[in-house]
Simulated assay, not measured.
Amino acid sequence: MRTKLKASILFIASFLTGCSDKPDTPEAEANIYQKAVYYNELRPAADKARDERRKPVEVLAFSGVKPGDKVIDLLGGGGYYTELLSHVVGADGHVYLVNSPLFVNFTKDQIAERLANNRLKNVTRIDGPWNALGMPENADVIFIVLGYHDIYVPRPNNPDFEADPDAFFEQIHASLKPGGKVLVIDHAAANGTGNEHASTLHRIDEAFAKQDFEKRGFVLVKELDVLRNPNDDFTKDIWKKGIMHLTDRFIHLYEKPLNN
């Protein structure tokens, strides 16, 4: 058991080092994350065009996801990260693209195109209501990329699109194996604003996010700063011209404790 654990730690560490975001990295020298991003012939051109602003090599390495893992791309929308994760976990792993009605509504055509003709053979699509998303158990890693703030957006005119935060976190907890990780990326709001700007500006206070996950039984493991923008104007909606795709984004990795 100790041997397997040590091997796993060494495996992850080897890929966390030297993981700079360089498209000119020779394939022979590339790690699994660089190969997934730069040497994956299946990737659509539209995905590649988003790489510069999303830093997927660094994000994947930070998550620690590895071949053979069971991963959930939660609220993954059209599946940008699903595609990459599919390549990283390989034939012995599996990826679940899980979306609520809100996300299906906005990305259903993208999802259908990405998964057409079983092009990602190790990916399963799951569409479910917010309170019963149907996620599998014993997941190694759950990705929540730019969707966390949406659980705090009230939508009284369309209750199917509105989440119950407590039920959402309960499902995450039930789905993750002990020691499993949750990677969260979201648009930062001004300090001290909590979740009050989730519906108006599509942002959420980073300190609130930490407290939110920790009070639900998760432990913050580490943070990554590759998507920070100190010049972001926190008073602007993330879709406003000049700031769209350039927001200050925090990246957190949480763990479900082994005894939890």
Rank of each mutant, 00 (worst) to 15 (best):
Ala30Trp: 00
His187Cys: 13
Lys236Ser: 06
Ala116Asn: 04
Ala61Lys: 01
Leu85Tyr: 07
Asn138Ile: 07
Lys70Trp: 03
Tyr81Lys: 01
Pro56Val: 11
Glu58Tyr: 00
Asp47Gln: 08
Ile142Tyr: 10
Ala174Arg: 15
Arg228Tyr: 04
Ala167Met: 13
Ile126Thr: 13
Leu120Pro: 00
Gly194Ala: 08
Gly78Cys: 03
Ala45Val: 15
Asn99Leu: 02
Asp51Gln: 06
Lys4Tyr: 08
Pro230Glu: 03
Arg2Gly: 10
Glu27Arg: 11
Cys19Asn: 14
Val184Tyr: 10
Asp248Asn: 13
Lys22Tyr: 12
Gln171Asp: 03
Lys181His: 09
Tyr152Phe: 15
Pro257Glu: 00
Val153Glu: 09
Asn191Leu: 09
Val104Leu: 05
Lys181Thr: 09
Pro136Gln: 08
Arg203Gln: 07
Arg114Asp: 09
Ile251Glu: 07
Glu83Pro: 00
Thr193Gly: 02
Arg155Gln: 14
Asp225Ile: 08
Asn157Phe: 10
Ser86Asn: 09
Asn229His: 12
Met135Asn: 06
Glu214Gln: 14
Ser8His: 13
Asp237Met: 07
Lys222Leu: 02
Pro156Gln: 06
Ala45Gly: 11
His173Tyr: 15
Arg249His: 08
Leu176Cys: 11
Val104Asn: 04
Ile144Tyr: 00
Val123Pro: 04
Thr124Gln: 04
Pro178Cys: 12
Ser100Glu: 12
Glu58Ala: 13
Asp127Pro: 10
Leu258His: 13
Thr82Leu: 07
Gly93Glu: 02
Leu5Ser: 08
Val65Thr: 03
Tyr80Asn: 03
Gly90Met: 01
Lys70Leu: 07
Pro178Ile: 08
Pro56Arg: 07
Asn105Leu: 07
His202Lys: 05
Asp160Asn: 13
Asp109Leu: 05
Leu176Gly: 01
